[in-house]
Design a protein around this nucleic acid. Structure first.
Lengths: 108, 108
DNA sequence: TAGCGGTACTCGGTACTACAGAGTACTTGG
DNA sequence: CCAAGTACTCTGTAGTACCGAGTACCGCTA
């Protein structure tokens, strides 16, 4: 699949929120997870910028824990604002997909 | 619905391609059409930048015709490259939506 | 006939996001 | 010791939608 980056804008942050909604985890693992899920070209730098943004916007709670396998990990968990943002993301996603689908069906 | 602009990146151009795939039409009408379809905040300037980009990338054929109701209109129609681009857009769209849906179902 | 509203296009600048690419640092195994 | 895998950080770039202002043409009406 060729370049998806433009189409991922805005949705990738939602994907990270969704992953964090399921479990407390950290940047490196999130990147691997996204790669497995089919977002093959998503790279660490991208995930970290998203995580830093989430932190700056106070949507996550951060805990640093030693790893025993490399440097310490920064674990991220959604707080209430983060869960609200996640819900808002899915609402937008449903909205947009429904409109696009309508357009695709030749909707007028 | 609050701000959708980030999530529209990459998809809005596809929407315009889809509309042009159905009929030869012009910028102002495309904007109205998108607004009706639920992309309420999409504004003329945005559509025109997309159209100019399509033209620059040689995905459309352009014909200027007098309007009888305002200034002349620039009608856009997809050429072969444009139809290929449209197909590629839908392929990407299917791909991304399927991955996101998988993620949403707690897919692992 | 002057002005207003609707139609129609153009253009310069801005904000936001994903990505490239390089660097730092910690651990284990050969 | 050093290579490879793990893990995070930072600077800069490109691409896209949007803002806002401007230009221009038309019909209607006061």
């Amino acid at each position: 699949m060729d370049d998806l980056t433009e189409m991922l804008k805005g949705t990738l942050e939602g994907c990270v929120l969704e992953i964090l909604g399921g479990e407390e985890t950290y940047g490196y693992a999130i990147t691997r997870r996204l790669n497995e899920l089919g977002f093959a070209d998503v790279v660490e730098g991208t995930v970290y910028t998203i995580l830093l943004r989430l932190e700056k916007n106070r949507l996550v709670q951060v805990t640093k824990r030693p790893s025993g396998l490399g440097p310490p990990r920064k674990f991220y968990a959604l707080n209430d604002a983060g869960r609200a943002e996640l819900a808002a993301f899915w609402a937008k996603w449903e909205y947009i997909t429904s409109r696009i689908e309508k357009l695709k069906e030749g909707g007028r």
